[in-house]
Design a protein around this nucleic acid. Sequence first.
DNA 1: CCGATATATGAATACTTGTTCATATCTACA
DNA 2: TGTAGATATGAACAAGTATTCATATATCGG
Lengths: 114, 114
Amino acid sequence: MEDTFESACKHGENIKKFQSEYKEETIANMANILKILGEPSRMKIVLALSYGELCVFHIVEAVKSNQSAVSHQLRILKDNHIIKSRRDGQNIVYYLYDDHIMEILNLVKEHVEE
Amino acid sequence: MEDTFESACKHGENIKKFQSEYKEETIANMANILKILGEPSRMKIVLALSYGELCVFHIVEAVKSNQSAVSHQLRILKDNHIIKSRRDGQNIVYYLYDDHIMEILNLVKEHVEE
DNA sequence: CCGATATATGAATACTTGTTCATATCTACA
DNA sequence: TGTAGATATGAACAAGTATTCATATATCGG
């Protein structure tokens, strides 16, 4: 059994394992969530909320940004099920969707702190 | 002690905890690594390499891309210490820098598969 | 109901970045 | 040493997106 088209490397079999374990859609979903978290403005919001729910006013304060920018990012985080919101009087209170995201971010923090 | 400027929410103290625990630089580094992984083209390369080292030729095959695009992304991954490379004859063989990245990606995979 | 406060939204802009194309570099081998 | 194979690089282009500005919506107190 001769492969007529072969590089010097001998690891072709592992490619099939990779391709069967990771479907395009899975990879797209994985990349998508990381892309969303991979923006300082959004990352800050998530980390701030990890200490407890906050209204928009306090989020703006925490991340030292402005109301409009924060509101746009909150929308993106909410659409992607990273945070949820509820109304509390005149305020909208935001909080994390679940603990899973923070498990990931804690690992990332360890990683960057070596 | 009266704060003259206060929203209806009562969670201001947590903001300080967040700000002292996460410095700007830490957040920037965390976001940076997630941004890098948050691109399907790069994510695929990393996942493919998690099954073992590969030369560029095989990476191109694994991720179904082309030589130049892959080479550019390999550079970015290498510059950010996500992968390393060594020469093996005519080939350059790429492999993961350490296990840490895959720990993160495994968590992410769990997350998207619910 | 009205004004004030809190939040969301849409359009426009500016910036970042992934891909492509062409070409350069480097290694092995005849 | 010259040629072929393997990989890297640079410039140009296209596409995506974060921020800003202006404005809209919604809630509460009086």
